[in-house]
Simulated assay, not measured.
Amino acid sequence: MLINNLLVGKNIKLTSFKEEYLPTFETWYNNTGFLRLYDVVSAFPKSETELREMILDTRKSSDKYIFAIKTIQTDKIVGVTGFENILWNNGTATVYIGIGDNNFRGQGVGKEALALTLEFGFQELNFHRIQLTVLSYNKPAIALYEKLGFKKEGVYREFIHRDGKRHDMYLYGILRNEWNNII
């Protein structure tokens, strides 16, 4: 799925994360349902001030990128995506994505946004390998990653404790040549 216009797809675009998005981001970070899919840390709410610091830290970093996921039709922010733990000398990075607006889950937004993010990573940043982790109970995300060509590479057994149960965390990865075969 080669996207001809870098960071712009059919229905969504990836843009810089602006100060004006912080109130929306704060809403997501106060939604435990979102947090339990987005991160492995405890679903602890964050204030707009804490999130501002997190975004500033990302912008100052040489091993992280963050994008706002916005709809083309309404120019509304619906999620975030980006890279962290970039090892430039090895051409590797960890990708992340979160669709914060429930109305846009299951609508193909995540697939399009992740495809744009991967394209940016492989084509613009010259990565060789992109990886991610996902909790075993996040079945929709796992299906999405596999559809885009990610391969399950490992299991962190009983990694996280949620609601009185232990859950595995999976490691998925995709190499540039695998991505090239998909596009």
Rank of each mutant, 00 (worst) to 15 (best):
M1V: 07
I12R: 06
K13T: 08
K13P: 04
K13M: 04
T15G: 00
S16H: 07
K18M: 12
K18Y: 11
Y21E: 01
F25T: 01
E26Y: 00
W28T: 06
W28V: 02
N30S: 10
T32Q: 11
G33D: 15
G33L: 14
F34G: 01
L35A: 04
L35I: 10
R36K: 15
R36E: 15
Y38D: 11
S42Q: 13
S42T: 08
A43L: 04
F44A: 12
P45T: 03
K46L: 12
K46C: 11
K46M: 13
L56V: 13
D57A: 14
T58I: 15
K60E: 15
K60G: 11
S62F: 11
S62T: 13
K64T: 12
F67K: 05
A68Y: 03
K70N: 10
I72C: 10
Q73W: 03
T74S: 15
D75P: 06
I77W: 04
G82H: 11
F83N: 03
E84M: 12
I86G: 02
I86Y: 02
L87Y: 15
L87R: 07
N89R: 15
N90Q: 12
G91F: 05
T94D: 14
V95N: 02
G98N: 08
G98E: 10
R105L: 07
R105D: 00
Q107W: 00
V109W: 01
V109T: 09
K111W: 01
K111S: 06
K111M: 02
E112C: 07
T117D: 03
T117S: 08
E119W: 02
F120S: 07
G121Q: 06
L125N: 03
N126T: 06
H128T: 11
I130Q: 06
Q131W: 10
Q131G: 11
T133P: 03
T133F: 13
T133D: 15
S136K: 08
N138Q: 15
K139W: 08
L148G: 04
G149L: 00
G149Q: 02
K152P: 08
K152Y: 04
K152I: 06
G154T: 08
V155H: 02
Y156A: 03
F159M: 10
K165Y: 14
K165W: 07
K165Q: 15
R166W: 15
H167R: 00
H167W: 15
D168G: 06
L171K: 09
Y172M: 13
G173T: 07
I174F: 07
I174R: 02
R176M: 10
N177L: 09
I182C: 07
I182F: 08
